Simulated assay, not measured.
Amino acid sequence: MPAALRDRAFQWGIGLAARLPTASRDGLGQEDGALGPAVAARWVGKRWSTGLQLLHEQALGGEGTADVTRVQPFVVRDLGAAWSMGAEADARYDWERHSLKGPLTVYLRRARGTWAFEAGARYWPDGPTPEPEWGLRIGATWVFE
């Protein structure tokens, strides 16, 4: 991102969301594909960024498929020296089951060169089982400009 846009900038975009059936086991992901519209908006400040991503995944068929609308708000705080900390939600509305579920996540991220590494904790207030569940999020992102 150009230096002029790094401080106090509003950004938005529209595009296409795709879910590919790449899970090798049922517990690791969905066995069907989906396609749909996506909209994102964010405000980038000097130390804080906040935004929202909204997307709809229209199932492409298969047994047990579901159309899902996702709302993903987030907030990120720049900690300096290429470190940042963030929080996000991933609320998913299942149109077939008429249910709203999704995890809340807090994470710490470190950027190094063209890569960003992150680790954090996830909490499902209304998870796949009746009781709340905790999880771990670990990731690496290739960053390109």
Rank of each mutant, 00 (worst) to 15 (best):
W95Y: 09
E118P: 04
M85W: 10
P2T: 08
G102E: 02
D126K: 07
R19H: 06
K101W: 06
I138Q: 01
E131A: 09
R112H: 07
E57L: 14
G64W: 00
P132M: 02
F144L: 06
R19W: 04
A111I: 05
E88W: 10
Q72V: 07
D32L: 06
A40D: 03
L136C: 04
R47D: 15
L35G: 05
E63N: 11
R92K: 10
D78P: 07
D126M: 03
W115C: 01
L100C: 04
A121E: 07
F10S: 11
A66G: 01
G127M: 08
G102R: 02
W134Y: 12
A18Q: 11
A81W: 11
G13N: 06
A34Q: 02
E57P: 03
R42D: 00
E133N: 08
W12R: 07
A59D: 15
L79P: 12
G80Q: 12
R77N: 13
P132W: 02
P130E: 09
G135W: 06
A81P: 04
M1Y: 14
Y107A: 13
R8S: 13
R19K: 13
A116N: 11
S24V: 14
R112Q: 03
A3P: 12
V106C: 09
A121D: 04
A9G: 14
A111E: 05
R122H: 03
G80M: 11
R110N: 10
T105M: 05
E145T: 10
L100R: 09
S49A: 15
W115R: 01
R77T: 13
A81D: 15
A87F: 12
R8L: 05
Q58P: 01
D90W: 07
R92W: 00
G29W: 02
E96D: 15
T129C: 00
P128D: 13
P125C: 05
T114P: 03
A66I: 02
W43T: 09
G120P: 01
A18G: 10
P130F: 03
V44M: 03
L35M: 06
W115V: 04
L79V: 12
V39Q: 01
L79C: 12
R47A: 15
G139W: 07
G113M: 05
G64M: 00
